[in-house]
Amino acid sequence: MRDDATHRHDAATWSPLESDGWYAARNATTALRNALLSAGLEKDFPYLRADLNAFGHGLVELGRVSPTTAERLAELLRLALASGMQRLQEGGGAAEHRTRED
C-alpha cells in the first residue's frame, strides 16, 4: 500500500549515504587528497573534506590555507597546464605530420 509507513520517505531518517552527491564529493575529495599526497601538500590542507549542501549537492571543502600553500598550489597548476599544453602541441604536430605523409 502506497500510504504504508514503510514506503514513505521520511526526511528525518534521510542519510547522506543515500545521496549520489555525497559519493561524488567523497570520490573527488579522495582524488584530490591523493594528488596532494603526491605533491607533498597533504598536511597543508587540514580542512579538506567531502560535504553536502542543504539541497543534497556534493561539495568539496578545501578550507583555509596559508599564503605559502596557495603559492605552491598555484605553481603546481601552472606547471600542469604548461605540461598539458606542451603535450597537446607535440601530439597535434605529430598528427599533422602523419596526415601530410599519407
Score class of each variant (00 low, 15 high):
1 M>R: 08
3 D>P: 05
3 D>T: 11
7 H>S: 07
7 H>I: 03
10 D>A: 12
13 T>N: 01
14 W>N: 09
15 S>N: 07
15 S>H: 02
16 P>D: 02
16 P>W: 00
18 E>N: 13
22 W>K: 01
22 W>A: 00
22 W>G: 01
22 W>Q: 04
24 A>F: 00
28 A>G: 08
32 L>S: 03
33 R>H: 13
35 A>W: 07
37 L>C: 02
39 A>V: 01
43 K>H: 12
49 R>Y: 06
50 A>R: 04
52 L>W: 05
53 N>R: 07
54 A>R: 06
55 F>G: 05
55 F>S: 15
56 G>K: 00
56 G>S: 03
57 H>D: 11
57 H>L: 08
57 H>Y: 10
59 L>V: 02
60 V>Q: 02
62 L>P: 06
62 L>Y: 08
62 L>S: 05
63 G>F: 07
63 G>N: 08
65 V>W: 06
65 V>C: 08
66 S>H: 04
67 P>F: 01
68 T>G: 09
69 T>F: 03
70 A>W: 02
70 A>S: 12
72 R>L: 15
73 L>T: 11
73 L>W: 09
74 A>Q: 15
77 L>E: 09
77 L>H: 04
77 L>Y: 02
81 L>Y: 09
84 G>H: 06
84 G>A: 15
87 R>I: 05
88 L>Y: 07
88 L>G: 10
88 L>A: 12
91 G>T: 13
92 G>M: 10
94 A>G: 03
94 A>W: 04
94 A>Y: 03
98 R>F: 15
99 T>P: 00
99 T>Q: 14
100 R>I: 15
100 R>H: 10
